[in-house]
Amino acid sequence: MKALFSSTKINRFFSRFCTYLFLIVLSIIIIYPLLITVQSAFNSSDLTAFTLDPHMHWTLANFKQLFSQTLYLTWFKNTMVIAISTMIIQVIIVTLAGYTYSRYRFKGRKNGLIFFLVIQMVPTMAALTAYFVLGLIINGLDQYWFLTMVYVGGGIPMNTWLMKGYFDTIPRDLDESARIDGAGHLRILLQINLPLAMPMIAVQALWAFMGPFGDYLLSAFLLRSPEHMTVAVGLQQFIADPTNQRVAMFAAGSFLISIPIVILFFLLQRNFQSGLTAGGTKG
């Protein structure tokens, strides 16, 4: 794309100045709250509010307290177990369904697609009471597998649409020539289409993995005992109680949980653009 403004020299200088000013101001607005949280993680533990302090004394005391006095490591492990199982199950289901809706023409296909679209709009998390009763009956309350299935189910409709959009962009000529060579359904799926869809599968895996890390509502509601909590619910306790605010410890816990996710995110973010626009332009 050409520069937005281009007529005279002064105009050009002015437009470039404004562009950089915008980029820098936005960057500061993004960095400031993050920096303040990171710094508070290393500040003294009697902190009551986050502050940005250039003369601060850096310490690891919060992390030591986090590991020795709280269940943080257990929460971390719980969240990991739930996130990884959600990721594996959801990616398999969504990839198979998305592939089918992209490649096959079968009876009920159109109705199925509309069903996915409509069901994705229903705020399933509002059905809290129903989840609670269901959990009570099948003995799933306070159990990881039940929460995992709820996460998986909630992610299927929308992600199947995105997956289908991506498979639509992979040319079908390859399938055809493989079929003429005698390849069956499974070979065409596993050996031709799956490798080509890897960028999107990676994106889906990342999103499915991040979901449980970001959710507060369902995990707070379905996992009751302290040793089964996820990080989000556990950390919230540190700042929810106004009489016993452990802000610095909250910051330290948040910092630790964010690091692996941010790294994964930036390793895979190259794939986002193709994944999103493929689903977006068609959908």
Partner: peptide, 10 residues
């Protein structure tokens, strides 16, 4: 990239 609950609570 950062989990939303972290930023919202901060």
């Amino acid at each position: 990239a950062i989990p939303a609950f972290v930023t919202i609570m901060s």
